[in-house]
């Protein structure tokens, strides 16, 4: 146990030190990777623990971006006030949205979440305060180190929250819902309430990630903020790393971001193809995610992969 804590602390220290030993390209890659890891970790709360696959979490990212942009560009408020405003809007929207759609189960829920970001993008394109189609320009702050460390702190906060969930009664409720929602209700789990709380937590962290990103790139528009490709990425990264685990989504997001970056750099156009192969292999050999390899492989060695294939009948 002590060894694991030490390794974790060393990894965090290494990540925190990147702006001091890395170059500008690495820092910028780091900001993007850390923010997408926050999205994956947030998605994990409802998707990984409660088993509700959302393809709509990018709406909270967009709301976070617009919240900060409106606060800073239209009302001249400081960044931190913008973040509070952004998080409040996103959490309120999650609660409002969750009430009707979290009554739907399984694939019905997933289908309904598909259109949410596109609808919000259309709304932003028509609102004066959001700059319509043109978008908004934020005040410029050239300090990548600050954005990098802010992203790292946010990821740490999201991960600590998930670590708490994994040990709490709240987390047990989400897991019970994932395992069998009818049985969960029979033992006294108020499923709707717990699912809404999970979505609201995801909205909170996702919106702050969107807000940091908006201030960093200083320009936002509807298509870039309500970006539905983010939805696919956060789901894949969580699944790849290990859904319903504390570190899986972080490991998945950082590893896949790095693989994609290397592939895009060396073979450009074929990168997407190789990326697809990596995911396919992972799904077949590591259905419980990359972090399950730690325990499973140590015990079973190469048989671990065979066991996975057999157990999931792929």
């Amino acid at each position: 146990m002590n060894g694991r804590w030490f390794a974790l602390a060393a990894a965090v220290a290494l990540l925190a030190g990147v702006p001091w030993f890395g170059n500008a390209v690495l820092i910028q890659f780091g900001i993007n990777a850390l923010l997408i890891a926050v999205l994956a970790q947030s998605w994990n709360i409802l998707g990984g623990f409660a088993g509700y696959v959302s393809f709509g979490n990018s709406v909270f990212y967009g709301l976070g971006s617009y919240g900060v942009a409106i606060a800073m560009a239209q009302w001249n408020l400081p960044f931190w006030v913008g973040l509070i405003f952004a998080a409040t809007i996103a959490v309120a929207f999650a609660a409002l949205l969750g009430w009707p759609i979290l009554r739907l189960r399984g694939p019905y829920f997933a289908i309904v979440t598909l259109g949410i970001s596109a609808a919000m993008s259309a709304l932003a394109s028509n609102l004066d305060i959001a700059g319509k189609n043109v978008g908004l320009i934020l005040p410029l702050t050239r300090n990548d180190t600050l954005f990098y460390e802010a992203s790292l702190v946010l990821l740490a906060a999201a991960t600590l929250t998930v670590a708490w969930i994994a040990r709490s009664r709240f987390g047990m409720a989400l897991i019970a819902i994932r395992e069998d929602e009818d049985a969960a209700a029979s033992v006294g789990v108020n499923a709707t309430r717990f699912k809404i709380a999970a979505l609201a937590m995801a909205a909170f962290f996702t919106a702050i990630a969107g807000g940091i990103h908006a201030y960093w790139i200083t320009y936002i528009d509807p298509a870039g903020s309500f970006d539905t490709t983010l939805d696919v990425r956060m789901v894949i990264m969580t699944m790849f790393g290990g859904p319903g685990t504390v570190l899986g989504p972080v490991v998945g997001a950082l590893v896949l971001s790095a693989i994609y970056e290397v592939l895009a750099d060396s073979i450009s156009k074929a990168a997407a193809l190789f990326f697809g192969i990596v995911i396919l292999v992972a799904v077949i050999f590591l259905p419980r995610g990359l972090v399950d390899l730690g325990g499973g492989f140590r015990v079973l060695r190469w048989r671990y992969f065979l066991t996975n294939i057999r157990q999931y009948r792929i």
Binding site: I175, A176, E179, D180, D182, A183, A184, S186
Partner: peptide, 8 residues
Amino acid sequence: IAKPFPDL
């Protein structure tokens, strides 16, 4: 028909 939480 028993409804356990299968993975736990």
